[in-house]
């Protein structure tokens, strides 16, 4: 009882308990060490590396310090950071919006389904568990001129299109991402819809609201925190998606699909400029961090509203 009181008092004093009560250290120490080794050391290496002219195969300590030169040269030279950022944004947010809308729609339809929910859930898991590289290679075949996608279009009398050309390359990538990850939204949002309280919905229906109004005014606001969490998870994943883009297009044709991860790969592996690649990577990390921050702030606001 006394111990509980001590903890409760300590919790008001910020970091003081870390130094006063060693028991805390015992519990969080191992987790802190693991996190430090797995996250902060590589991050430190990326930051330090980005300030050096570090070349592939050379140890970092033998590389010369160049300050912010790598950051200042990001937008011209071998790879255009601005162009890659724009492509990544279109790819990321394009995929996210479609996946969210489709996922929500199917999740709502599933909640109204009386039977075979388990079967559908099992089917929806399949695309998620396939290796991204395998997804890329398979879709490379599907997207070829005589492939599955054009065959499906032909069933609806739509003429074949060149999915491998520079005009539709980014659209194709969004299509593949939507195929693989919409089920993720469906499953999470379906689970979320199942757990919503029924009373507010019943109340609004009694007041004369139709099903759409009940969904829009009651279910959707209640589901918003979950939607935001799913969006955070997905956007982080899409921003650093390398395998599928590389397997299908390798950044081409031209530079039509040179998203940030492909640009980082090129800096590291083709240009052998590890320092410059580290600068790209660090900016990618900062970008992911800020996007997550925006979503988390939005999440906090929705909780306050509720």
């Amino acid at each position: 009882m006394n111990k509980t009181k001590v903890y409760s008092e300590n919790s008001k004093r910020g970091f003081a308990p870390f130094f006063e009560n060693k028991e805390y250290l015992f519990y969080i120490g191992p987790a802190f060490i693991v996190t430090f080794i797995l996250m902060f050391l590589p991050l430190c290496q990326i930051i330090i590396g980005s300030l050096h002219k570090w070349e592939f195969g050379k140890p970092l300590f033998e590389s010369s310090f160049v300050g912010l030169k790598n950051y200042l040269e990001l937008n011209y030279g071998y790879v255009s950071f601005g162009k890659s950022l724009k492509l990544t944004a279109i790819y990321g947010f394009g995929s996210l919006i479609i996946e969210l809308c489709l996922g929500l729609l199917v999740a709502v339809l599933l909640t109204n389904l009386r039977r075979a929910r388990g079967l559908f859930s099992a089917i929806f898991i399949i695309p998620i568990v396939i290796m991204p590289a395998m997804v890329g290679l398979t879709w490379k075949m599907y997207l070829s001129y005589d492939g599955l996608v054009n065959w499906v279009l032909s069933l609806f009398f739509i003429p074949k299109v060149n999915w491998m050309g520079s005009d539709l390359a980014l659209v194709s990538l969004i299509l593949v991402d939507v195929w693989q990850w919409t089920p993720f939204f469906i499953l999470i949002l379906f689970a979320g819809l199942q757990t919503l309280p029924k009373d507010p919905v019943d109340a609004i229906r009694v007041d004369g609201a139709n099903a759409f109004q009940a969904f829009y005014y009651i279910k959707l606001p209640l589901l918003t925190p979950l939607i935001i969490i799913v969006c955070i998870l997905r956007i982080m994943e899409i921003i650093r998606n390398f395998d599928i883009v590389f397997a299908i297009y390798q950044g081409g044709p031209g530079s039509a699909t040179e998203t940030l991860p492909i640009a980082v790969w090129r800096m590291f592996m083709s240009q052998r400029q590890v320092g410059m690649g580290s600068a790209f990577s660090f900016i990618l990390i900062i970008l992911s961090f800020f996007i997550a921050l925006v979503f988390i702030n939005f999440l906090k606001k929705t909780r306050v509203t509720h």
Binding site: Y78, S166, G252, G254, R266, S270
Partner: peptide, 20 residues
């Protein structure tokens, strides 16, 4: 050559498809 080949292969492809 690795770096040179990459630069030529990317800018060349951009010209080939009419990006520049």
């Amino acid at each position: 050559w690795f770096q040179i080949s990459d630069v030529m292969g990317v800018f060349g492809s951009e010209a080939f498809v009419g990006e520049r």
